[in-house]
Design a protein around this nucleic acid. Structure first.
Length: 800
RNA sequence: GCGGGUAUGGCGGAAUUGGCAGACGCGCAAGAUUUAGGAUCUUGUGUUCAUUCGUGCAGGUUCGACCCCUGUUACCCGCACCA
């Protein structure tokens, strides 16, 4: 039969919608299954073929699950707050609300055109009042529990976007949005105390089924290290210099100390430091460097010795000079280190440059030629001499430090607290009031949502203040506590706020009394399967796990981990093999593909083009192969003869049902489709098939090419929607032929194949192999040393 | 530097995890159909005339290795002066 996709695709999309075919039911007798895909940021460019691939994976799983009788929740929404929208709005002189609505509309129509089986009744939009009200609510809960704090510190700042960025948003020293170099700036910012959850985020990984590299990346990002804090006395003043080290056992090898240029001890002791002018000059220079420059100059160590402060080694009593250098960061540990040049590369390079002594405390290397970081016997270390096990020597030293009261065991994380405010308009207002009498006062829960005010000019101020700061009607308010005049916080939340809990809102998107109903949460959570991009592993994934764990500790969600399983799709590259980007002009627009080939071809192609988890280049002619495949399937209606089973096709059908069923569970869509193609070739060889058989194939095809499947299902007289028909089952016994071709090897080389009954005995198989004339000739006159038989696979005869 | 991964025809990729390497698709070639192009269909397609040789490279284990072990090279991704 001939299919006109331009007519059939919209027809079935409408029928699904009218039938509410993909609506998830709260509380059902069916088993539940919650499939989640990362909701898109509705940018002005519309959808990308990458989105299609990202959603097609769990789309297929969702459709299969429904056919298997599950109550499936497969929702979609829009993560609509954020800078790009705001920048577009500024450029086009429109309100961000208008831009957002326009973009959401565009995305919605594109998603619907592809025929995704989302539950459109549960769409969430993070910028809607009914949504961000609860984002603010959770923020206030965090405030209430002491997880929100304000601090003045060096933060990542993007001079181009004019915003403070979190660590996660400035990876590699580049602004995540505009890719320009970020700078360090001292600012007062709001933080979420995510480090409080570092251990829980780490240990929680043990109970979830995430892709191994997803887990590993999170472990690395959290970056837990164990060691010790040591307090060094200072010769000149009655103050301690506190350091963190993972190797306290090398304390006898310390020949100098290094503190970060920003370390407060310098400011506090200006008068005492003889070379303060030189230090100031150096510090100023460091402040000017971008993060990028600071890391590029790794090899070339710079620094200055502080003239006027001397540390005392707490175990040896020796006097140690203190340097400032930008290879020590204020943001990690205590901003100060004990330098052991013999056993640390960076310290070694620094010591060589400044002519500082190198004292070996671990045997095994030549410390004059380079730092030795390996294991070995402890030397020059008094009570530690003779220790050969790192663990023991560290434990012994910590014990000693605790005894003499100069240090203790410590833990550090690379992950830092989450800098949470942005100086832009298009985000959730932070519901806080600054009162001259009461200090920082949260907006009462009943006043939520704290609405984003309408403004004309939402460009950020030159001084880096939020556009909201210019709106007096918003800023000026009464203190909720004392009732006197006060001012509102004018910064907004970062883009990652709304996406940190959206999977909970899908469960109860219209609830006005809670972020979601308790019983519904209990029914649906956790998300059974979450698929998304690798780029979100160290941001969205960590952030949302943190929020969810916080809600769990409050008893507001039923499970501690939000996502039971996490997988990731690979990128679609441009036809040139490069990452798709507008500047390279290699972007493929899904709309063009749907116009020309139809949604079914697009869906099938993005899943057939390669391994789902790997990147693969777009190849138009390969897509034509998928078009041909679907056309040939449609033509099968002409080959239908009778009902029941075609003997020659029985095994191929059972095989294919099994293969498709199992491959979908492993995201091996390419081989699932390939097996249907193979079946199609088998059918073509036979020249006919029965109606029952075709209806099996149509149902297997349905998750991939649902419009064609529905059309054929209807033509064949199938009951109801194919999308809701029962998923075909297979009989394991019928997945194999009664006779199998077995390869016969002589000394491991294939010499012949013989057809023998399936599961026949080893003896029979070997006898059959020997009966083959080629094999008989090969063994002729030689002595058989060994005969190996793997049932149904191979016979190997070793001769001499 | 640390962590993770990949390497198979002209291309995208398969291989039940130690058992006939190259499924399936693209591309290509020949033929059919067509006024022609396109589309479609049929056949062929790792290499070699052949015995052969073939899964980045060099070894090893095994009756048998894309798969396991040792060494090595290249590329990709993430983090990175983390003390």
């Amino acid at each position: 039969m001939k299919i006109d996709f331009k007519q059939t695709e919209p027809k079935w999309q409408k029928r699904w919608e009218e039938a509410g075919a993909f609506r998830a039911e709260d509380f059902s007798d069916k088993p539940k299954f919650y499939n989640l895909v990362e909701f898109p940021y509705p940018s002005g460019h519309g959808m990308h073929v990458g989105h299609i691939k990202a959603y097609s994976g769990l789309e297929v799983v969702s459709r299969k699950r429904r056919m298997q009788g599950y109550n499936v929740l497969f929702p979609i929404g829009f993560d609509a707050y954020g800078l790009p929208t705001e920048n577009t709005a500024i450029n086009d002189n429109l309100h961000p609300r208008v831009v957002t609505d326009r973009n959401i509309e565009k995305f919605t129509s594109q998603l619907k055109r592809v025929g995704f089986s989302f539950d459109w009744d549960r769409v969430v939009d993070t910028t809607e009042e009914g949504y961000y009200r609860w984002t603010q609510w959770i923020f206030l809960k965090m405030f209430e529990k002491g997880l929100v704090f304000r601090d003045t510190a060096l933060v990542n700042y993007c001079p181009s976007c004019k915003v403070v960025l979190s660590n996660e948003d400035s990876q590699g020293g580049k602004c995540d949005i505009c890719k320009s170099d970020i700078v360090q700036k001292s600012k007062t910012v709001w933080y979420l105390r995510i480090t409080e959850y570092a251990d829980k985020l780490l240990s929680g990984l043990e109970e979830v089924d995430y892709l191994p590299n997803v887990k590993q990346q999170q472990v690395n990002w959290i970056g837990k290290s164990t060691g010790a804090f040591v307090n060094f006395s200072l010769k000149e003043i009655d103050e301690k210099l506190r350091i963190y080290t993972t190797r306290p056992d090398t304390l006898f090898g310390v020949t100098f100390m290094v503190i970060a240029p920003e370390h407060p001890i310098i400011e506090a002791n200006r008068d005492r430091i003889a070379n303060i002018d030189a230090l100031d000059a150096y510090r100023e220079e460091c402040a000017k460097k971008t993060e990028f420059e600071r890391t590029q100059l790794v090899k070339d160590k710079t620094g200055i010795c502080i003239d006027g402060l001397t540390a005392i080694n707490p175990v040896s009593g020796k006097e140690i000079p203190i340097y400032i250098s930008d290879y020590v960061m204020m943001g990690y540990g205590t901003g100060a280190i004990m330098a052991v040049p013999a056993h640390d590369e960076r310290d070694w390079a620094f010591a060589k440059k400044f002519g500082i002594d190198v004292v070996e405390v671990i045997k095994g290397g030549d410390v004059e030629k380079g730092a030795y970081a390996g294991d070995g016997e402890m030397v020059n270390s008094e009570f530690l001499n003779g220790y050969t096990n790192k663990k023991d020597s560290i434990a012994r030293m910590i014990e000693h430090l605790e005894e003499i009261g100069v240090g203790e065991k410590g833990v550090q994380y690379k992950m830092k607290d989450w800098a949470f405010n942005r100086q832009r308009y298009w985000g959730e207002p932070i519901p806080i009031v600054h009162c001259p009498h009461c200090g920082i006062v949260p907006v009462p829960y009943e006043e939520l949502p704290l609405r984003l005010p309408e403004v004309k000019n939402f460009e950020p101020g030159e001084g880096g203040e939020s556009p909201l700061a210019k709106i007096d009607a918003f800023v000026n308010c009464k203190c909720p506590k004392c009732g006197k005049d006060a001012k509102r916080e004018t910064d907004t939340m970062p883009q990652w706020a709304g996406s940190s809990w959206y999977f909970l809102r899908y469960i109860d998107p219209k609830n006005e009394n809670a972020f979601a109903d308790e019983a519904k949460l209990k029914y649906w959570m956790p998300v059974d399967w979450y698929n998304g991009g690798m780029e979100h592993v160290t941001r969205h994934m960590i952030y949302s796990r943190f929020w969810h764990k916080f809600l769990y500790d409050l008893g507001l969600v039923p499970v501690s981990e939000p996502y039971a399983k996490r997988t990731a799709q690979g990128l679609i590259l441009g036809p040139d093999g490069e990452k798709m980007s507008k500047s390279k002009g290699n972007v493929v627009d899904p709309n063009d593909v749907v116009d020309f080939y139809g949604a079914d071809v697009l869906r099938t192609y993005v899943l057939f083009m390669g391994d789902y988890g790997s990147a693969a280049p777009w190849n138009e002619s390969s897509m034509k192969g998928c078009k041909r495949f679907l056309e040939r399937i449609a033509d099968l209606t002409d080959l239908v003869k009778g009902e029941g089973v075609t003997p020659k096709l029985e095994t191929p059908f059972h095989k294919t049902v099994k293969k498709v069923s199992l491959d979908i569970e492993d995201l091996k869509f390419n081989t699932a489709i390939a097996s249907m193609m193979t079946l199609l070739n088998d059918i073509a060889d036979v020249g006919s098939l029965t109606k029952d058989e075709l209806m099996i194939l149509v149902r297997l095809l349905c998750p991939f090419a649902p419009h064609l499947a529905e059309e054929m299902w209807e033509t064949l007289g199938g009951e109801g929607l194919c999308s809701l028909a029962a998923w075909p089952e297979w009989d394991e016994n019928k997945t194999v032929e009664s006779t199998v071709e077995v390869a016969v090897q002589i000394n491991g080389k294939v010499r012949a194949t013989v057809a023998i009954p399936f599961n026949c005995s080893k003896e029979d198989a070997i006898a059959a192999a020997k009966a083959d004339e080629k094999i008989a000739a090969a063994i002729e006159g030689k002595s058989v040393i060994k005969e190996i038989c793997v049932p149904n696979k191979i016979v190997n005869i070793v001769v001499k």
